[in-house]
Every structure is written in structure tokens, then in C-alpha cells.
């Protein structure tokens, strides 16, 4: 399936889609996204009637229910010029699934196509949309990182490169390789509940690689995978943690020397 073409988002107001999990569990990460965008001079808006993209229902086969929820998304973002989100699988839901989900719905199909064509993931928005590769950031302390590529972002939205580019440019950040960084962590939404043992077997392998990786911190771009991996790391009493790329970027704002500016 070909993703819809997008126009340049330069100079447009951004409507932030925080996603349900980030809203309730990782609000600080949401704030990091806002900080970064505002640092870039982008005007950010938060449509307060947003809820969830509908993915949990869609992925488990409940398309009517998924549509019900997705319709709320379309209502909430009906005036948006550009939608930015920071969770690969939710972005993929909008970009990749909405057009087909609403294809036979005369009332909503135009809005669904439009949403698919104005939605960006944070990192690709910065790199591909705004054309910025160096955010001129600096961490207060030197740190080592490695990336875990969240599946939907990687395979449906071709993300991964943009996040690496941005973090590579942060002063004091060293990026290392995580072995099997493109292998699924085992989350898969309700899969991790319905097939908990299989999911855990996958997670166990991921954690083995994380523990073997010399980097202190693993970066990813999807809060659900982050929840899965940190849930496993915590249960196994590992000191390693997975963080969202937006939080790493926001931390880079803290170590900035005066005078370093992007604008």
C-alpha cells in the first residue's frame, strides 16, 4: 500500500495528537514534544476533544468499533493543518489504515484521506518536513544510546532514519548499535494479552539484547513498545531503561549553551 503524499508543513500550525497512552501514562513525554516543536518556532495546538486513534479495536478485528473511535479523531482534528504525533503505530493507524477503513463511508472518507495526508511523526516532521537535521542540542552530561526500531513506525512509515539523524547531532550523545534493533519487542497491542506467553518469549529475547548492549539507554519512538520493554526490564530488575526520543531531544534543550540557536 502506498502512503498518501504530503505537502510541506513548513510555516503551518501543528495540531498535536498525544495518543491515549501518552496522555495518561507519559504526559511528560507529550510535553517534551511540545517543547521541541515550540523551540523550532512551530505554533502548537492541542485539540482537546481527541481520544484514541482506534488502533486497539482495528487490530483486533473490531472495525465498526474502531471506526466509532476514529470518527472522534476526525472530528477533533477536522480543522488541523498539520497533525504531529509521537507514537509510530498510532501515526501508522492514521496514515496507513484510515483511508481504507473509511473508503466506503461517504460522510467521513474525505476527512480520513485528509488526515492521512497531513499526519507526521515527530522526527520525520522535523527532518523530512522542516528539513532540519541538526537541532543544535546538547545534553548536560555525556550519554550513550542505542535505538530500538518500533515495528509499525519502521515498516509502515519508514521511520528510524530521522530519529537517528537527530540524536546523532546532539552534542554529548553517543549512538551505538542494538543487535536485532529491528526485531519486534513482542508488544503488538492486544497480542501481548491474548498471546501473553509468546509475547513474553519475544520480550525476553529483546531484553537479552538490551542487557548485552553497551549503551546505557535505549531510544524508541513508540510508547506502547516502550511500556512493554520497560515492563519487562523492571520485572527482571534490569537497570536499563527505554526512553522516548522526544524526551532525549528535550533533555538536549537543557544542556544547550547560550547562543546556540536554531532560528
Amino acid at each position: 500500500m502506498v502512503l498518501p503524499e504530503r505537502e510541506s508543513p513548513v510555516g503551518k500550525k501543528v495540531s498535536f495528537f498525544v495518543t491515549c497512552i501518552m496522555d495518561m501514562i507519559y504526559p511528560d513525554t507529550g510535553m517534551s514534544v511540545v517543547e521541541i516543536l515550540e523551540y523550532l518556532g512551530v505554533v502548537v495546538d492541542f485539540p482537546e476533544t481527541q481520544t484514541c486513534c482506534g488502533q486497539p479495536g482495528f487490530n483486533s478485528g473490531y472495525r465498526d468499533e474502531a471506526k466509532q473511535v476514529a470518527t472522534q479523531f476526525l472530528r477533533a482534528f477536522k480543522d488541523a493543518e498539520v497533525i504531529v504525533t509521537a507514537s509510530g503505530s498510532c501515526g501508522a493507524m492514521v496514515r496507513h489504515e484510515y483511508p481504507a477503513l473509511f473508503a466506503d463511508d461517504p460522510q467521513w472518507s474525505a476527512a480520513a484521506n485528509r488526515a492521512a495526508a497531513i499526519t507526521w511523526d515527530l522526527t520525520e516532521f522535523i527532518v523530512d518536513g522542516l528539513g532540519i537535521t541538526d537541532l543544535k542540542l546538547r545534553l548536560p552530561q555525556p550519554k550513550t544510546f542505542a535505538f530500538h526500531d518500533a515495528c509499525h513506525g519502521l515498516r509502515l512509515l519508514k521511520l528510524g532514519g530521522a530519529a537517528r539523524t537527530l540524536v546523532n547531532h546532539i552534542e554529548n550523545a553517543t549512538v551505538m548499535e542494538l543487535k536485532d534493533c529491528d526485531v519486534c519487542c513482542g508488544f503488538g497491542g492486544l497480542f501481548s494479552v491474548k498471546m501473553a506467553e509468546v509475547s513474553n518469549a519475544m520480550l525476553t529475547k529483546k531484553i537479552e539484547q538490551i542487557n548485552a548492549c553497551p549503551a546505557e539507554t535505549i531510544i524508541t519512538g513508540d510508547v506502547s513498545c516502550l511500556t512493554q520493554m520497560n515492563g519487562g526490564l523492571s520485572r527482571q530488575k534490569s537497570a536499563k531503561r527505554v526512553v522516548h526520543v522526544a524526551d532525549v531531544l528535550a533533555e538536549g534543550l537543557k544542556g544547550k549553551r547560550d547562543g546556540d540557536s536554531i532560528k
Binding site: V18, M22, Y26, L203, N230, G231, G232, S234, R235
Partner: peptide, 13 residues
């Protein structure tokens, strides 16, 4: 198999 994280005291909204 995993620890579920805490809900944040305040949501993003």
C-alpha cells in the same frame, strides 16, 4: 510477565 507503569498523576490534557 511485566510490570505495568503507573498512570501519571496528571494527564497530558
Amino acid at each position: 510477565f511485566r510490570d505495568f507503569p503507573s498512570f501519571a498523576p496528571k494527564s497530558f490534557r
